[in-house]
């Protein structure tokens, strides 16, 4: 696949879900909170384009609102990761070898020992399950990811002569980090952000599937799957549709991330002339 095609297919897929999620604030085909046992487990039809679940709720509407939950959780989690991780990484790189650098890096290693699921378990054990829980668990795990990427690429920039030139021009480390380092790692952060966003969607689905994420009545893809599991023999469509939604959304984001990397990576660009 050509990198350009990859980017556009990815962006297109992601846009569909984003639009569906935004639309769900204003309108869904049916009310997802209203139970309608009379219409339970209906097949696909004009009224229910994707059928209904065991409570008679419209699957399409559930998927739209579920997209909202997934995107919101993953987006805020990426925000936490970028908001804390990038400054920490920049500071650590600007003060390479200092105590601060050491603390940031060891702290990162420590968080890596707590996969998001474990963080979610801890938080849930104390505060009970909630969507906020999922956001925190995924977001905390994102912090060291962004800190590491930022620090690594910032360190290689710090050895470049234009940074030295800026220091000779009397600029401090903080100012150089903002003026010279950050703009030159933005590409990388955008790509990493896309990857973490898609991982966040997957993690949110997993957490809600085991009941540590969004709680009823908030629809979420993971919980739809958990509820469908008991009916997998009789109504496999209930288990297949939310799964397909997750796959399509994550695939779209990953394709977009790869496409962006090819587009933004100057090495690739130069090679293509």
């Amino acid at each position: 696949m050509r990198p350009g095609a990859q980017l556009w297919i990815g962006a297109g897929l992601s846009a569909v879900f984003l639009l569906a999620a935004l639309l769900s604030f204003a309108w869904t085909p049916h009310d997802v909170t209203a139970l309608n046992i009379a219409d339970k487990l209906k097949p696909m039809s004009a009224t229910y384009p994707l059928g209904t679940d065991h409570f008679g709720r419209d699957i399409l509407s559930m998927l739209m609102v579920g997209a909202r939950t997934s995107i919101a959780v993953a987006l805020v989690a990426v925000g936490i990761g970028v908001g804390l991780g990038v400054p920490l990484g920049l500071l650590a790189a600007a003060n390479r070898g200092s105590l601060l650098d050491e603390v940031v890096m060891r702290g990162n290693d420590l968080i890596f020992a707590f996969p998001s699921l474990v963080i979610a378990i801890l938080i849930t054990a104390v505060f009970g399950p909630s969507a906020l829980n999922a956001i925190l668990a995924i977001g905390i795990f994102n912090v060291p990811v962004f800190a590491r990427v930022t620090r690594g690429s910032a360190l290689s920039l710090w050895t470049l002569d234009y940074v030295l030139a800026a220091r000779v021009a009397g600029k401090g480390r903080l100012r150089i980090s903002v003026e010279h380092i950050l703009p030159n790692i933005t590409n990388l952060l955008i790509v990493q952000g896309t990857i973490q966003f898609s991982l966040g969607i997957l993690a949110e689905a997993a957490l809600s599937y085991v009941g540590l994420g969004a709680q009823p009545p908030t629809p979420s893809w993971g919980r739809m799957l958990a509820e469908a599991q008991t009916m997998i023999y009789t109504n496999p469509a209930l288990a297949i549709l939310p799964g397909l939604a997750i796959v399509a959304m994550v695939l779209g984001l990953n394709l977009m991330g790869d496409g962006l990397r090819d587009l933004l990576d100057p090495r690739v660009r130069r090679a293509r002339g």
Partner: peptide, 18 residues
Amino acid sequence: TQLGIAVPNFWFAMLLVL
């Protein structure tokens, strides 16, 4: 592999069961 990464493992597990 692009597809493989996008598939949640627990959903894949359900498909395998099916």
